[in-house]
Nucleic acid binder design. Structure first.
Lengths: 149, 149
DNA sequence: TAAAATTAAATTGTGTACAATCGAATATTA
DNA sequence: TAATATTCGATTGTACACAATTTAATTTTA
């Protein structure tokens, strides 16, 4: 591969990721619209449905987001009645995020979202799963790097 | 896979993409900082280095971005002396984007960016390339869907 | 234990993304 | 060809992302 080929857009894994991620979000949007949530709110809920009552820090570690993104996001979700934000009495630096009844209930309607989205695009589950596992391995390595240095 | 497993964050290909894309951008940032450009400006330049003198529409088709994102982006790049934006006299609806001398020259310094980034993370070229090709296939299918409907 | 260091969340400022709308230019059609 | 439809880029408004800074609370250390 020569110098110019190395800079071709279609040879960039970073661009494939960037484009793919945004297109997938567009694929999900109509189904998330029905639930009245954005994509970022959706992944925050996925994390909370798995483990409720976590600090902003913990949620950020799970989603690779910091308080600069999460604080306004969680305030909107609180205003929408999905979560509550409570200062931890035992350590006032922490804010704990807890699902409300409405936030828990929304999970029922979310079960069908991933299936609908991938069905819409006609992506076979196998292909998607294999891609997912490769990305997970990739992510671990990248994240380790950006954390260490 | 039961219902709850289907909603686990680590089982979502969409989340793996979303997280991976943002972490990759962080990996590139220090090298792009040296060039004085953002990640989105970088991919716009990659496209223009490959094919110069294109309309905003054409550039958007290549990057999966619309004028809502591109117009302010290109104005900043124009202000930075990287491109010029000229109304096409033969069809005044179009705005053609052309690299300036400075924009062309920056390519010289960009050649080493991808290598540095992946070296930094210790990702083997093979693994990256295979991932890239899988993503490209995935992207084609998804994009076709979001366009058709 | 009082001062210094660390931690967590919030805030500030910049830069995308993207849906929806707008206004001008061009193409289509009745 | 005049009216209609389409296309393109710009604009508007909302919602992230994220670096950098700030503020308050807690730990660590001299």
């Amino acid at each position: 591969m020569n110098r110019d080929d190395a800079l071709r857009l279609d040879n960039q894994t970073c661009f494939a990721l960037y484009a793919c991620s945004r297109e997938i979000t567009k694929l999900y949007r109509p189904f998330l619209d029905e639930l009245g949530i954005t994509y970022t709110q959706y992944v925050a809920l996925l994390a909370l449905w798995e483990q409720d009552d976590v600090t902003v820090k913990q949620l950020g570690a799970r989603l690779y987001l910091d308080s600069g993104t999460l604080t306004p996001l969680l305030k909107k979700m609180e205003a929408a009645g999905l979560v509550e934000r409570v200062r931890d009495p035992s350590d006032e630096r922490n804010v704990r995020i807890r699902l409300t009844g409405g936030g828990q209930k929304l999970k029922e309607r979310a079960y069908e979202v991933p299936g609908k989205a991938f069905c819409r695009a006609g992506v076979p589950a196998e292909e998607s799963e294999e891609l997912r596992d490769r990305l997970a391995a990739f992510l671990r390595r990248i994240h380790q790097t950006t954390m260490e240095e």
